[in-house]
Write a protein that binds this DNA or RNA. Sequence first.
DNA 1: TTCCACCCGATTTTCGATATTTTGGAACCA
DNA 2: TGGTTCCAAAATATCGAAAATCGGGTGGAA
Lengths: 250, 250
Amino acid sequence: MALDLDESKMVSPSAEAESTTLANEAFERLRADIISSRLAPGTKLRLHNLREAYGLGLSPLREALSRLSENRLVVATGQRGFRVREASVQDIMDIAMVRKEVEGFALRLSIRYGDDSWEAELVAARHKLALVERAGREVAEDLWEARHREFHHTLVSACQSPCLLHLQRILSDQFDRYRRLSAQSRIPNAPRSLIHKEILEAALARDADRAVTLLGDHISEATKLIVAGLSAPQESRKKTARTPKTGSTR
Amino acid sequence: MALDLDESKMVSPSAEAESTTLANEAFERLRADIISSRLAPGTKLRLHNLREAYGLGLSPLREALSRLSENRLVVATGQRGFRVREASVQDIMDIAMVRKEVEGFALRLSIRYGDDSWEAELVAARHKLALVERAGREVAEDLWEARHREFHHTLVSACQSPCLLHLQRILSDQFDRYRRLSAQSRIPNAPRSLIHKEILEAALARDADRAVTLLGDHISEATKLIVAGLSAPQESRKKTARTPKTGSTR
DNA sequence: TTCCACCCGATTTTCGATATTTTGGAACCA
DNA sequence: TGGTTCCAAAATATCGAAAATCGGGTGGAA
């Protein structure tokens, strides 16, 4: 489960050699499984099942779920446990609007403060993204997601604001979940790379207004596709973890 | 401990009758104690001490601390436990900048979408704030904080964006902690209410540009005071929970 | 029939006991 | 003296059992 892409170091703020804990592992795996829709929206997250599935004790799992609920990927209800946050058109449109604002602001700052190595990282990230887009299609959906995320993260990474980066991560996580979700019933990608190239060029030219506008368009465009995919009949490609346990009556 | 103001229903999104858990209680109490600086920045949060102080088991406490760490009030380090997030001038300036942007955006939306009862709530919130400002001074610092927070929350509450409200809460929490922190070594408040009245009036007049500008000024002004208070020699008013160890000393 | 109180199995939540890791300092070399 | 290594004390992280709680179904009364 939770296939661990090499590149999915994901957006971990300041990477120090920090001995990890099981709770952290649980957090990362659950997060990945929810974002990738391996755990479908609305799925009841029974502790007992998770214990079996991930081979972890209850405490680390509860800790992880608590953290995820603060990130709006999981909903925790009083004495009724946890479930994967429900998906809705209204919700994704809300998220998109906020992301546009926050990521736009961060991009503006990044363009103001970014130095040479930021530019270099940006070029590199966009190149890796282009490579995976030119090559395989669906084969590498996970890889595409990872590189796409990395590109967007690099875009804002020079904004000099840990706080903003934190918010951006929360928003990306939610947005990416919807993308993956709607991708299940959608033809692959349009010529996406084009817009990324344009954003890159605007950023390198330090044209903040243009870059932010392009980024906004990009997000709006993606949101439109996502909404379309959500409304479309869900091609169920898998029985995603609908409390598989069995045995008893009913 | 953790004096529970009547008004501190705080910003709880959709208030439903939901049976609470000990973990939730721990979260609220720790959050309140950190924001109010009863737990000073940098304080090591030893689980055994907390267990004693709050009379709770380890699991609820760990859960609460995990959640708080996602809210940037607590820092969790690998196998080295938790501590209250350190305070710094750089950090508060970062927070203030982001809050200005996010809350400004939310206010703009609120002004667009707010209806009659929003206006009414706004007037009411500002009135309660004015009352507490006119009356006692330091006596009611907690009360002032609660009503101030409520006023700001009401300002943005009509923005129709749960996502934005979530971010606003995270930012307010952090900002408020700094205010309380620096208030320890600062003369009380300037004529703050004036600016609130101006914001209120701009909002009622549906003058979004003016309201957002005023709000921005308000935040900048507050930040200036906070930074001044932070740099000033800390009048230590209490040995704030430096791993007290021995029996109950008040 | 409809409503309501009660009960049972399933699930969540909490607790205290272990296992694991870090920390601080004493002993030990160059 | 300065710098390692190693050990014991202390703290964290994890586990599984016990307690609390929920949801649904049953049966009795109006």
